[in-house]
């Protein structure tokens, strides 16, 4: 259900995807952020997904968007969370994965999704990834305190980032 090129230019679309497991506390921060975005950032041209994880079929929706914002959680000390404290919000502009991308699993990364979007569906959205560094990934719901603060910060960032309209290159 992609829009035509002309339709898109008139009405650039933004896709926000927040993902994570809300029953593993801080892991759910992406979903929480997406829910918040659904209440505060929804307007025509903005689509918001909340999901347990990234799945390949999102590639098609991504290909249809002009901009994509991914929101994820990361464990402090690992990956993006390395050398960072819980609650930090890391912002990255991301590009489709090249073939040397190491992260392969049921867990598809945003970069891989972008690569799929472009290789399979020919979409080339601008993309950015917000990662909130978390500390508590135990069973249960609700965010740890630093991550809750990180979420507030993230909301400001999201508001600022999504208000600026950008056109598809």
């Amino acid at each position: 259900m992609c829009l035509s090129a002309e339709q898109r230019l008139d009405n650039p679309t933004l896709l926000i995807i927040g993902y994570g497991n809300t029953l593993r506390r801080d892991d759910g921060v992406g979903v929480e952020a997406a829910r918040w975005a659904g209440e505060h950032l929804a307007r025509p041209g903005v689509r918001i997904f909340e999901s347990h994880q990234l799945v390949p079929e999102m590639a098609e929706d991504i290909a249809c968007a002009d901009r994509v914002v991914f929101i994820d959680a990361s464990v402090a000390g690992l990956g993006v969370g390395k050398g960072r404290a819980p609650g930090e919000v890391v912002h990255e502009v991301i590009k489709p994965a090249d073939e040397s991308d190491p992260s392969l699993g049921h867990h598809i990364t945003p970069q891989v999704l972008l690569a799929m979007a472009s290789a399979i569906f020919g979409g080339c959205p601008e993309a950015e990834l917000f990662t909130v560094v978390g500390s508590d990934f135990d069973h249960g719901s609700g965010l740890s305190e630093p991550v809750a603060r990180g979420l507030s910060r993230l909301q400001e960032l999201l508001r600022a980032h999504t208000l600026t309209e950008r056109s598809c290159p």
């Binding site: 960072r84 930090e88 990255e92 960032l157």
Partner: peptide
């Protein structure tokens, strides 16, 4: 100097 103080947003463009 622990967790809290640096809990400001870090921005790493193009990582």
């Amino acid at each position: 100097n622990g967790h809290g103080a640096t809990a400001e947003a870090a921005s790493t463009e193009g990582a």
